Simulated scan of single mutants.
Amino acid sequence: MSGFPLLEPEDAPAATAALFAEAQQAFGMTANLTKAMANSPSALRGYLDLSDALRHGRIPLPTRERLALLVAQHNSSDYALSAHTYRATKVAGLTPDEASRARRADSTDPEAEACLAFAHALLIHNGTVTDADLLAAHTTGLSPELLLEIIAHVALNVFTTYVTTAGRVAIDWPQTRHTD
């Protein structure tokens, strides 16, 4: 079954071409995810805006990549696992072991582990975290600001995993499978 067509930047209408240029500047490449999202300029704009806002948040890049890996694993998204394993190990400085641990909501970094634990609770409870989950997050030092950023990262990454899975987007990264 075919998925979303991949629009090429050179074939895009002017408004979409501008979004491609933003994606290229933000990510250094035009990934198949972006080419698929370009079928809806509104969806691509939302993705770029939320990605940009979260890049300027308090959560550091290594932890952002850990969160993306956790969501990708939870949603069995080989595209997202491939992209974020690459970014985590080649851009964010995580070791392959640390990237693998993130997929299980585990980390050697205490703050990252706390972020992953809260994100994991969000995922397994579909956003309805328990009082114990909130208490654990507060006990580990996660502020309301960080909790809201974690929620935003989970939402962004759920969105991208859904796009790549539902859209059958071809993996354009060194492949990592959710079954690995």
Rank of each mutant, 00 (worst) to 15 (best):
T139A: 13
W173E: 02
A170R: 15
T108I: 01
P110E: 00
E22H: 05
Y79C: 05
W173K: 09
L48K: 02
G28F: 07
E8F: 02
A23V: 01
V71E: 06
L135V: 09
A119M: 11
G3Q: 08
T128L: 14
T140A: 15
T164N: 06
E8Q: 13
A36W: 11
V91Q: 14
T140L: 07
T128G: 08
K35V: 03
E149I: 06
A88P: 05
E149G: 02
A18R: 14
R58W: 00
A14M: 08
E22W: 09
T89L: 03
P9W: 07
H56Q: 14
L67F: 12
H178N: 10
A132G: 00
G141T: 03
A15W: 01
A26E: 06
G28R: 12
D11M: 01
L122P: 10
T63G: 04
A14S: 12
V154K: 01
Q73T: 02
A119H: 07
L116N: 01
P41L: 01
P41C: 00
A152N: 14
S143C: 11
V71S: 07
R103A: 13
S2W: 01
A117T: 11
V71G: 10
R55D: 12
D11A: 02
A17K: 05
A80L: 12
P174Q: 04
F159K: 05
A23E: 06
L69H: 04
R55F: 13
T130K: 13
P62N: 02
P62Q: 09
S42D: 12
L94W: 06
T164W: 12
L44E: 05
A23R: 04
S76Q: 14
P13T: 01
A112N: 08
P174G: 13
L94H: 09
R177P: 00
P5E: 00
L33A: 10
F27S: 05
L142D: 10
N157A: 08
P62S: 05
F27D: 00
Q175F: 01
T139R: 14
V154N: 07
T160I: 12
T160A: 04
E111Q: 15
A112F: 06
E145D: 11
G93I: 15
R177M: 03
D172E: 02
P9Y: 03
E98R: 13
L146V: 15
A36F: 12
A121L: 03
I124Y: 01
E113P: 02
T179W: 03
A18M: 09
E10I: 03
L122E: 00
P5K: 08
Y162R: 15
T161R: 11
A18K: 15
P144Q: 05
T164S: 11
R87E: 12
L70S: 09
S76P: 00
E145L: 14
S2N: 09
L50T: 13
T63V: 15
A112K: 09
T16P: 04
A26N: 13
T108H: 11
A136R: 15
L69R: 09
V163Q: 10
G46V: 00
L148V: 02
H56D: 07
A83F: 08
D133H: 13
P96D: 00
